[in-house]
Amino acid sequence: MRTPVVARWFDGEGDGFRLLGTRCASCAAVFFPREDGFCRNPGCAGGELVEVALSRRGRVWSYTDGRYRPPAPYVSDPELPWEPYTLIAVELAAERMVVLGQAAPGVTVADLEVGMEVEVVPGVLDEDPGEPSTTWTTWHWRPVGVGA
């Protein structure tokens, strides 16, 4: 069974995969993670919040590698040696925001540069072989044209 690590933050498969945010109907501010209670824009009196699919592509705003074992809910086996992972902050121009996420497997800081175009792709955070087996899904950022 495939289960999102956080419900309603992303949806779809393949080229239809998207991060999901919300947009205020009054001021058009876009939020990710989604906001379902009120408009976070302090200059807005508030309006209906509508779910929107965010841009699939953006540009690397910043990046780094995680050389420490992060706390839960990140899943890692303390019995295995720690493997660094790459984090990418991606600017979505249309939404005027930066979204943080892990790089797709195999993408390292050596593969990235500020301004490079990346796309959001489905990812796996963890797999639980219990009954029933569960694959915990998330999103990753991948340089455009790599591993497509």
Score class of each variant (00 low, 15 high):
Y63H: 13
C44V: 11
R67Q: 08
R56D: 15
T64A: 06
L54V: 12
R40F: 03
Y63D: 09
P70R: 00
C39E: 08
R40H: 04
L54D: 14
V50R: 12
A45G: 14
D65E: 15
E35C: 14
V60E: 01
G43I: 08
V60I: 02
Y63Q: 11
V52N: 09
P71A: 05
P71Y: 05
C39R: 07
G66N: 11
P71R: 02
P42V: 10
C39G: 11
G43E: 13
F38P: 14
G43K: 14
V52Q: 05
P42Y: 15
S55Q: 09
V50M: 12
Y68M: 06
Y68W: 00
R67S: 12
T64V: 03
G46M: 10
G46S: 04
G43L: 02
G43C: 11
E51C: 02
L49V: 11
S55C: 03
E51T: 07
P71S: 08
L54P: 13
P70V: 07
D36W: 07
S55R: 10
G66H: 02
S55L: 03
E48S: 06
Y68T: 06
G58P: 14
V52D: 06
P70G: 07
G37C: 06
P71D: 08
C44M: 14
R59Y: 01
Y68H: 01
R56H: 10
E48C: 01
N41M: 12
D65F: 07
T64K: 11
G37N: 10
T64G: 05
R59H: 11
G46V: 08
A45V: 10
D36T: 14
R67V: 03
D65M: 10
P70S: 01
P70M: 09
C44P: 14
D65P: 00
C44D: 14
R40G: 13
W61V: 02
C44N: 14
Y63V: 01
R59C: 03
V52L: 03
P73E: 02
V50T: 02
G66R: 05
G46K: 04
W61F: 12
P73F: 05
C44Y: 11
P70Y: 03
P70K: 01
R59E: 10
R59M: 04
P73N: 00
S62N: 10
E35R: 15
R69Y: 06
Y68N: 08
E48N: 09
P73V: 00
R40D: 03
E51Y: 08
V60R: 04
